[in-house]
Design a protein around this nucleic acid. Structure first.
Lengths: 199, 199, 199, 199
DNA sequence: TGGTAAACGAGACGGTACGTCACGTCTTAGA
DNA sequence: TCTAAGACGTGACGTACCGTCTCGTTTACCA
């Protein structure tokens, strides 16, 4: 009979939690996702394996949390996009930033790891949409709605679809390494998208 | 001294090759990609492990080949798209077929497995572009060029970009399970793409 | 800095002590010695693990105490052997009682556990001789001295040796399961021993 | 589903087998039985853990085999006792040798380990009687029968009982550390036993 | 057509990591 | 202050697979 008792979060050791998430990020960057084991994370974090198993159901969940942790630091909670009134300029700025982020070697391995994990784990995918993609997408949609009111975007445009047309090509090109990710490419995607959803 | 001699492909046992690829596909469908091992494939195929290691460098390569095998059966060699003269109708037909394929449970697990593998393995990604995506994309681009000549598409449109705008949103939505994949969605993508690249 | 303070026995919770010893006995009988853990004893006794570690240095010590506790109940403090004047009859009575005790399933597992523990733990062996075997052996030697005075036993017989010749074969046969333990066997041992140490 | 396939003994690696048994003996002598783990044996032997689990069902079985291996070396196959015609002299010789063996630190820990294991494992106890104690006892009984024919021992003496009276006190005193093991003690046991079973 | 070298099935091997269990220490809350 | 509760770092458990390495046993070429 496995132990089904739930641990008491109030007594959780925050130092251990941070050490585990940091170790996970470091190891993924250093050796690539496929070679990272729970044992290695525990050893690097100076933590017992059980402390990982106690709080996370799977390795994917640890990866996810380590990534969540990273984003929280980066963003704070104000995830608002710039709004200069010029939707094209604003989107290009944001898209170019995304391109730059993908080129940063510190982000490369963990983001790839997370995406690989998401593909095969629906549970994780749901969490990803809710905790990571969701808030960011909401901020983007807020900016798009502003553009709609300014008449720069069709009033009846499906904003989820707009975001997909804008971002999915970029993500796919990066994940599949099927072409160069340049500022020009980012600009082209913005222009194409705006043309597609022009009023 | 390890055995560095290369095996002689002429003497390869075709029955074993087929059994291995079939076993790989079956196991991925049955138990999910993460739980499939070389041992299990060998056992299911009634084959020694060495016979797998002799001909494939990694598990990802086996998965890839099993998938390649599958596509070859499906497509034959004539990977030409319909050309009725109406690019919108033709693309909608093809996109709806893709949506249907993604809904087929026999394809679901293996395609996901392949995509997950590609994300973390540049070598495999290159093979994927060359052997699988490449031919299909070429066929699609042939159809798009025909549309350009018919004045249905901007003559200076970057066809790789067109394909990305057309397909990436669909793939991403499926991989991330971030929304329903319907015929209407397929149609919408075609319409949006054609508007974006209208002459 | 570890806590090196000694606990104050005066404040010890007798209810917990009894619960621990009882739980130890029960678990050994139920699951066999090898499978009994401190965790299980603590859980069964409804006691914190620390309460066990505070008062006993090792699992062997708990087993020992649980056994000591059991014997104390059984014997009271009057550990005197019968003295009818007939040493052979008296010894046979006692030996047959020992045989019967060994056949009692409630005693089987704990006594075996204790003996296994004693073999590898000199500290525990010393305690065993002092607290458990000692008093019983003293009582037996008192009876043997009475037999010496009655001329039924050689006056210069080494009483420790007499006890060993009398009991060791019985214990060994039981521990090694190398033969049946019957009343006849008990009788034979008494007869052989008396013959060996006849005046 | 555990793997129930039986390994093929014909393909067993004798070098590994020897290394495991030697490592087990060494570790028991060095750190005491209680502290020896399968992991440590595998590491010391330069062997995978699975190679141990493949061929032995339990740690006790490894210990037992390592001991069996040791005895085989020591005895060769001729386990015959000396027969000078003087049973008392011959037995004293053998008993003194046993006492000396118990004092040899190379034997101390493994023999204790084996005895502790035997107490709680009936399966192992049976093997012990058959493979280790049995042949030795047979040799001893052969010598005792010779003494019976020479009229030095009661013709109707139960030889198993004779052996128990002779050896059990010695074993028990050693296992329980309840007294010194000297040549004099060995002699005394022989004298007592012969007196007990005198014709 | 019979000999021989390869590929084959089988599976044992030295390993790594798994996920679980229990250890003995520690911290917290409550009586 | 002792206690029940239980999280912690540690490390062994027994299992699953890894990729390599023999073992015989088919196969298929070639002499």
């Amino acid at each position: 009979m496995p132990d089904t008792r739930k641990p008491n979060p109030a007594r959780r050791n925050e130092r251990s939690r941070q050490a585990i998430l940091a170790a996970a990020r470091e190891l993924i960057s250093e050796m690539g996702y496929a070679r990272v084991s729970i044992e290695a994370i525990a050893a690097r974090a100076g933590v017992g394996k059980q402390t990982i198993y106690r709080w996370w159901p799977s390795q994917g969940a640890v990866i996810f949390d380590s990534f969540l942790d990273l984003s929280r630091d980066a963003e704070g909670q104000g995830v608002a996009l710039p709004d200069t009134g010029d939707i094209e300029a604003d989107l290009k700025l944001v898209m170019r930033a995304t391109v730059a982020e993908f080129a940063d070697p510190r982000f490369e391995a963990p983001i790839r790891a997370l995406n690989a994990e998401i593909i095969n784990d629906p549970e994780l995918a749901a969490q990803y949409r809710e905790k990571l993609a969701g808030p960011v997408d909401d901020a983007k949609k807020t900016r798009l709605r502003s553009a709609q009111q300014a008449g720069q975007l069709a009033a009846d445009a499906d904003l989820d679809l707009v975001l997909e047309v804008l971002y999915a090509p970029l993500y796919q090109r990066w994940l599949h390494r099927s072409g160069p990710l340049t500022a020009e490419y980012a600009d082209a995607l913005v222009e194409v998208t705006l043309k597609a959803f022009r009023p």
